[in-house]
Structures are given as C-alpha cells and as structure tokens.
Design a protein around this nucleic acid. Structure first.
Lengths: 348, 348
DNA sequence: CTGAAAGCGCTTACAG
DNA sequence: CTGAAAGCGCTTACAG
C-alpha cells in the first residue's frame, strides 16, 4: 500500500481507456451501466481516490473551502463559537468531499491578501466570510475576484454576496421583554466590537426596545469580546452611582467574567444583578449561578452556511443565484442568573 | 483582475521559455542573476501566484499540512488549547506558504480514514498527530503510509514517528512539591481521558511523588475533559467522608467548573480547598478566585511543532532524520485559588 | 546559461 | 456506447 492507484491502473485492469474510466467514476453518460459498476467496484477494491491536484488542475473544483479568522488570539481560543461553527461546516462538507482550509491572521488586510492569494493559486472553490462589518472592505474584494463566498451574517451590508444570518433583532426584543417582565428598569449592555454588523443590529434593537418599554435607564459599553474587557466593563457598571439591575453580554465568556466580578465585588447574582449571555455554551452551565442565555444552534448554523455555499457552486452553473437566508431563530435558556431584582437594589 | 496570471504569461512577456521562468521563480540554478531579478519583478507586478494544483501535480509539494481533531464537540469548542495550538502552527507555516487543512471527526477510525484519503489524494505533505494514546493505532497507519507526521506528544509510544512534547513529569513534580510545601496532605487529581499518554504520564508522576513525599491520601478520577464531568468529579470528591484539601485538574475548563462546584457547595476556595489547573488561559484569570495554573506556551508549542514538520520534509531529501524534541518546560502561575489549608478543614 | 519536450493524473470535447 | 488526444500549469531532466 505504498503506491498510489491512478485511473490508468484501473483502465489497464478493466481493459478500458482512461476516459471511459473517468466517465464511469464521475457518473457521466458515455459508459454502460454494467461497465460503470465494474469500474466503481474496482476503484473501491484498489483503494483509488482521485489525486486532488490533478482533479483541480483539469478544471474541476479544488475541493476545498477557505475560512479566515481575523480575531486576536486573546478572544479566538476562548470563544466556543468558532469551533462549533467549524464542526457544523465540516459535517456538511464531508458528504461532498470538500476540505476546509483554515487561516488565522492578524487583521482584515491580511485576510484580504489571503483571499487574493487563494484565488490566484486556485486553492479554494469558495470562502466563508465571518464577523461582517457595517462597512466591510472585504466584500468588494470578493466581488471583484468573483470568488464564491457565503457571508455568515446579515441581513444587509454584504453587497451582492449571499448571506446566512440569525435574527438578532427579534432575539434582543425577546431578551428585553423578558427582563422588563421581571421588573428590571435599569439595563446595561456589554457589547462586542463596534462596527461589526451584529453589534450594531443588537444595539439598534436594544435602544429601540429600551425606549418603547420606557426603561428608567440604559447604557451600552463596547468591548473587544475578551473576558478581560468584559470584566472591566462590569466593574465600571457596578462602581457607578447609577447601577444596572441587569446586564446583557454579547458573548458567553464575558458573561462568565461578569459573574466573577459580581462575586468579587460582593454583588449578589441574581438578587442584586441579573446576568444574561448571548450565545450559550457549557461555560454558561458550569459557573455558579449558571447563566441565562440566548441560545443559538451554532453547529446547525455552520451546517447551513456550508450547504448554501455548496449550493452556490452548483447553481452557478445554471445561472440560478443562491440568495440570502435566515437561519433558525434563537431561544432563551433561563437559568439561575436572572430573577426579579430585590427591593434593596432598586434604589441608587 | 479577473484573469489569472500563469508562467506562460510571464515567459511571453519576458521573452523566455516557461522552463527558464520556472527556474528563476524557484531559485534554481540555470538562469543569470539579472534574468532572475527581471522575472521576479515581473511576477510581482503581474500578481502571479503559482497554481497550487499544478505545482502539486508536477511533483512538488501539496503545500498543505493536515490536522484532524477527533474529540467530541462538547470539549472541542471550550478548550482554548486547540485554537492556540493552531494559531502557533499557522504562524510557522505562513512563511513557507503552507496551508492548514482542518478536519473534525468523530473518532480515531474516522481519523485514520481521513489520513488514508489524504494520502491517496495527495492532499497534504504531512500531518500533525495530537492526543497521542499509550497504544495508538494511528501510529502504525501513518508509518505504513509513509505520510510525514509530527506527533504532538510524548515521549515514547509513537513508534518511528518524530514527536515534540512538553515535560509533564517534572511539571507534576513541581505542582506536588508546591502543594506539599503549603502543607497539603490530601490531594486529588481530576484527570483527562485514561489511555491518553499525557494522562498516564501525569498519573505516574502523581503517584510517584505522592508516595515519595508521604501524602496521607491521594486519588485520581478520570473524565472526558468536559466541564460537566469535571464538575461531577468535584462533587464526588467534596461529598466523600475523606475530602482532599487540594485538587489538581487536567485542564482549565474543569478547574473553572471545580471552582463553581466549591462555591455551590459552600466550600471556600482557597481556605477549605486549593484548586489548580493544568494549562493556563484567560478562563483561569476571569473566575473568582483566579486559578493557579501550570502554564505552558501553547502557541509557541504550535510554532515548534510546525517548524519541525517543515524541517522533516526538507531533511527527508538528504536522509537526515528529524528526531524527537522536548519543548519549553511549563511554569507555575500562582493566583488566588491555592493557599495553605486552614485548620478547620484538616480534620475528616 | 537557455530552450524544447515530456510528464504529473485527471477531465472533456471530438471522432468513431 | 467507447477510444484517442489535447490540455490544465507547473517542474525537471535533457540537449544545446
């Protein structure tokens, strides 16, 4: 088993031409059904797998999608989001023999350089674009290159590229109405990076609902998603003269950091302070108290995104455009970190 | 910019043959220095990048390394270890234009199938093998395929494959002597998956040092690395009639879960119980109290591993074998979760 | 130092 | 339904 099997080997053994073998293997017309079965059987027995380079070079697909992660190492490792998304993508790609090329870079300029290189090298058949920004310079580059891309995010702000997103607006409405029903009147938000589309979408919804339900007070603090900045924002909020009775965090690790800061400052959760995380994960379950979270099926999201990029490639052939798509809406998983605020904490 | 530049384009414009252009581009002898410079300049101007498929097909490298992750989704996403390792690998691979192919699978059988497929497809030039087991069936397969591999783990138990590891034995000695110096006499270990080499190496060191320093009591509970099992093990330890005064966890997320369980059960950390994590991460810093940890430079580890796989490929050419290598030893980062046990908790 | 040619393993019109 | 041939974009002996 130290020699690779090629279609030439199969052709010789089957007494056919390479072309016929290729047709048989690829389900193309041009060979009889019995021949096809015989070839397929032989390929299996001989342990044949197409040489990916040869396949790619002769005009077929590269058989790979690319994903660039342009977040600082400080947040990348800690957020379960990415690995879940990747797991989902891969389970969808496995069936079509598509590999995932992963690249970790420092910023969007490096990310763009990677796209250009991948395009020129013909390394990938398409890419996933994540962490969409309101004004995203990556979008026009991908449009210019005509590199098939599926945007993980939206709606809007991704030009002519198709996107898949989860509805953050209605999720935020759900969160705020839940907190309002618990009688919270002062709610803070520890948000992610400003300029990212979902940060802005959530902010807009947060402000809109705050006004509509007539909150006494509300505020938003932006962070880089890291637990350090999440902790710092929490300290700031809990040290001010006007303190929130509830804080909504834009990810799970910052919410965990928030619980610790409350503990460290002697603020009771959920008695004095309710805490909510955006994205649920085991992290939310293992802290004390466990954290109420906006739960999204990230793995399923990844599956969806990959399926649609695969569909985009097929559709390209007959001119049918794959359009935007909204994924399964998030749901609220209520745990011990949220409650009606106790009387004593209402003053300030 | 919608047309890809090939060496034929460069050759035409430079008035040379494709062969000459190839020599110039690859630093091979056979062209004058002035010609080489002219070609290099042109390639840059024209935005040329080698077609990766063509390069791979004509005998050169595939330009990619593969990494298979065969852990359940439940632990993959939460442990910062993997993303840090990947970041490190990629920063080392970037300089040699090597991409990373990532595959998430269910178990080692699927992992082996992936190696066989990658080998047959000529997809990768080499692979990284992680989570080495004491009796690892992946090793003989990679040896048989002669697929260059770098084992992330050791020492030992990886056959003829070269490995890079971090010394867990001396790290465990350091941990135990530190706890003993604090007067801990009953120490428990919440370990990872049994059968994994580093689990066993640590267990051996743990037992050996326990005996040598004459602990009154010690025990090890195995888990799947997930925070759930870490929490469960902690509850068991703290509910027994003989309770440890210190627990050493095999990763960071289980230690975080341990702190929460202690909190939930009214056990004071570090007064009644000291907690230590293996692998440090922001998770250890953001909980309250912050967790004392065995800190390893995982990103640097990844850099090392990738550099050595690259070296292995080069060495292959002149028969010089790249051998095993021991990375930078871990160090102890002491935080608030460890202390001398208070009198009241000593009885039992 | 340079050019012409073969070959890597596939796919795909083009004849039969 | 099948075979012979060209071509994808490189690399690399082989002549000059």
């Amino acid at each position: 088993m130290t020699k690779r099997v090629t279609i030439t080997d199969i052709a010789r053994r089957a007494g056919l031409s390479k072309g016929a073998v290729s047709y048989a293997l690829n389900g193309q017309p041009g060979v009889s059904e019995s021949t096809r079965q015989r070839v397929l059987q032989m390929a299996l027995e001989m342990g044949w797998h197409p040489n990916s380079a040869a396949k790619a070079l002769s005009g077929a697909r590269a058989g790979a999608f690319g994903l660039v992660l342009a977040r600082p190492a400080s947040t990348l490792g800690v957020e379960p989001f990415f690995m879940k998304l990747i797991s989902g993508m891969e389970s969808a790609m496995a069936s079509s023999q598509t590999a995932l090329l992963l690249q970790v870079v420092a910023d969007h300029d490096a990310e763009i350089a990677t796209y250009r290189r991948w395009w020129a090298e013909r390394r990938v058949d398409g890419v996933f674009l994540i962490d969409l920004e309101v004004h995203d310079k990556r979008v026009p580059v991908l449009e210019e290159l005509k590199l098939p891309a599926m945007v993980v995010g939206g709606p809007g702000n991704h030009g002519t590229l198709p996107g898949v997103w989860i509805d953050d607006t209605s999720a935020m409405v759900m969160v705020m109405e839940y907190l309002a029903a618990l009688r919270h009147r002062r709610i803070a938000r520890v948000a992610g990076v400003p300029g990212m589309l979902h940060t802005e979408v959530r902010k807009e919804a947060f402000d809109e609902v705050s006004a509509r339900i007539g909150l006494a007070w509300s505020t938003t603090i932006n962070t880089d998603y890291s637990p350090e900045e999440g902790a710092q924002a929490t300290r700031r909020l809990l040290s001010a003269s006007t303190r929130p009775t509830a804080i909504v965090y834009d990810n799970d690790v910052m919410a965990v950091a928030g619980v610790s800061v409350a503990h460290e400052m002697g603020v009771d959760v959920p008695g004095d302070l309710s805490i909510m995380a955006w994205d649920d994960s085991v992290l939310c379950e293992i802290v004390h108290p466990p954290i109420t979270a906006v739960s999204r099926d990230i793995t399923g999201y990844g599956v969806h995104v990959a399926e649609r990029l695969l569909a985009l490639l097929d559709d390209d052939l007959d001119g049918q455009a794959v359009r935007d798509f909204e994924g399964v809406p998030p749901r609220l998983v209520v745990r011990g970190s949220t409650a009606r605020p106790v009387r004593s904490s209402v003053g300030a």
